[in-house]
């Protein structure tokens, strides 16, 4: 069965995938409205937006109001295409919107899962190739640039990878929920370890495990939609990781808290 490889993005670009999700929905429905295969629109829209964000993000730091407004409008466009699709195409049905918003992992054909597997393999390979410089550029942008790492190209390349992954995930859990599947395992892994490659493995493991467990759960409980189950498991994994991290840091935390308290007392006493 189709299994999306969870190459999560543990870096501060979670909102990029949110934005890409919106674009994926509109792209898919625009393609449907034009009578093209929805996946063409899906990947075209996510890749286009990824490049756009990468290029713009390099020049100016667009603020949240601008990003939010643009993507709210893009979603509005998506509803517009949805109406065109449902009213003009004879095969159109209202379920298309729900499928692309919330995914339909059970609706994937064998051919679709083969395509998904190939795309996932290419993405993983590309990520492995750029992994080391990307990590460098992410952790310390300025130093990496000074050391001759092509920061811009790597940034745009990574966003394209995120875009393609978003297009993949949109078919499984839907445009709205892919953010969770990219953010929750990545966030959980970062809670558990600071080491990058171990973290990547954990993130991938959590994403795959929550997909499998979610699919099995929703098979056992027919009224439970697979997307909700997958996201529920992923969220639980994140909460679990947070609890483990907290329990682990309690002893260390106690010490640093008392130290902080002592510092504060010292400061207030001095002033």
């Amino acid at each position: 069965m189709a299994c999306w490889r969870g190459r999560s993005s543990p870096w501060p670009q979670v909102f990029t995938s949110d934005a890409l999700g919106h674009a994926a929905y509109t792209g898919a429905l625009a393609a449907l409205a034009l009578g093209v295969d929805a996946r063409v629109g899906l990947f075209a829209a996510t890749a286009l937006v990824a490049v756009g964000l990468g290029v713009l993000g390099g020049r100016t730091r667009a603020d949240d109001v601008v990003i939010g407004s643009v993507f709210a409008w893009i979603l509005g466009l998506g509803v517009f295409f949805l109406t065109i699709y449902t009213t003009s195409q004879s095969t159109g049905n209202g379920a298309a919107s729900v499928n692309y918003l919330f995914g339909s992992i059970f609706g994937l054909s064998p051919a679709q899962s083969v395509v998904a597997a190939v795309v996932a393999g290419v993405v993983s390979l590309a990520l492995v190739v750029i992994a080391r410089p990307l990590l460098f550029a992410t952790v310390d942008h300025a130093v990496a640039a000074a050391r001759g790492v092509p920061v811009r190209i790597i940034g745009v390349g990574f966003l394209v990878l995120v875009g393609v992954t978003a297009g993949e995930a949109a078919q499984d859990v839907g445009a709205l929920l892919l953010l969770g599947l990219m953010a929750a395992p990545g966030g959980a892994a970062q809670r558990l370890t600071a080491r990058p490659f171990v973290g990547l493995a954990i993130a991938g493991g959590i994403a795959v495990a929550s997909t499998w467990v979610g699919v099995i759960l929703s098979y056992l409980v027919p009224s439970l939609p697979p997307s909700s189950a997958i996201l529920g498991v992923a969220t639980l994994a994140y909460v679990g990781a947070a609890l483990v991290a907290r329990a682990r840091s309690t002893s260390a935390g106690e010490r640093s808290r008392s130290l902080a308290g002592a510092t504060r007392r010292f400061r207030t006493g001095a002033s």
Binding site: V14, S17, A183, A184, S228, L231, Y238
Partner: peptide, 27 residues
Amino acid sequence: RGFSEESAVVGTVQAFALAAGFLFVAL
């Protein structure tokens, strides 16, 4: 504790809320 931590929480909460909503709709 840094932006990435914060945005991972927000992203997870948002997606979980939507997933829960979808579950209610499906029920």
